[in-house]
Design a binder for these strands. Structure first.
Lengths: 142, 142
DNA sequence: AGTTGAACCTCCAGTGGCTAGAGGATGTAT
DNA sequence: ATACATCCTCTAGCCACTGGAGGTTCAACT
């Protein structure tokens, strides 16, 4: 039986985050000691590991909920899980494309900086005047 | 003189966002009509354009505050603005590296999916068992 | 058995960067 | 005069946590 602290350590999660997952019903209510402290077993350890690993791969908590649900039904066809993963992949690819455009633009800004007065700063100039910017970037945080 | 709505349209910002920027003192309090509606001039249009463009390049509002401040002092050396941009560039590069690792892993997951039952689903398996995962991904959202 | 002190508990508030909606006032065109 | 788009303030919500106050419990050590 694991305390919340050791479960946290094993999964690289903060204690508060585990309690938060319980609150939003992503993790089940665990057993308690007489004094009221949470105690966890292997099932919970597995579930939390799954959640954390999915988070590291960028899945939203809602997507994780779906994935967990699919995992609970081993005989159902798996194309749904596949679809969720593909969606995630698409999103990651979109983000990469966007960040690469930003990298290009920031690189240009930084390399054109003469190191003089702020009045002549290319960095500030580019930010001031979008037309001095070669990149097409419309969405924020996409 | 611009209403908040036309300023919003010109800069691709939502009206609420402009009011939010005013609230957090990123935008100044504008003049008002007798009836109490906000009216903006060119200075505000420029400032908001600067903010929005910086946001599109991924700068945080705090970084933007610094950049705006630098822009107000044209005779100071510009290495600070340069440093902020370089920091941002570093961050973007880190994010790209991380997302590329995720892309690799998601690709692997998706391509190994046999399309059978969830019990045999590679997607779920990889998520369940980090050791089946070739990628080194520790930080979330980094 | 008593004492320490780390780890636990609940509850509330805050983060960033907005976004949405209620309920009402204003501005402009006809 | 009237319609109605746009404006106003205020409050609350989004995601995924994170931190802190103030108090309790557990396990180890004497």
């Amino acid at each position: 039986m694991l305390t919340i602290g050791s479960l946290a350590k094993k999964t690289g999660t903060k204690v508060q985050t585990i309690r938060y997952y319980e609150q939003i019903e992503l993790m089940p209510e665990p057993g308690r000691t007489e004094g009221g402290q949470r105690r966890y077993g292997d099932a919970e350890l597995d579930r939390l590991s799954f959640i954390r690993h999915s988070r590291q791969l960028g899945f939203s908590l809602d997507a994780i909920r779906e994935l967990l649900d699919l995992g609970d039904h081993p005989n159902r066809p798996c194309h749904e899980a596949d679809a969720i993963a593909r969606r995630q992949l698409k999103q990651v690819e979109r983000r990469i494309a966007r960040l690469e455009a930003l990298r290009t633009e920031l690189n240009r800004m930084v390399h054109e900086c003469s190191g003089g007065r702020t009045a002549d700063c290319r960095v500030l100039e580019v930010l001031r005047d979008h037309s001095a910017c070669l990149t097409d970037h419309d969405e924020i945080g996409a």
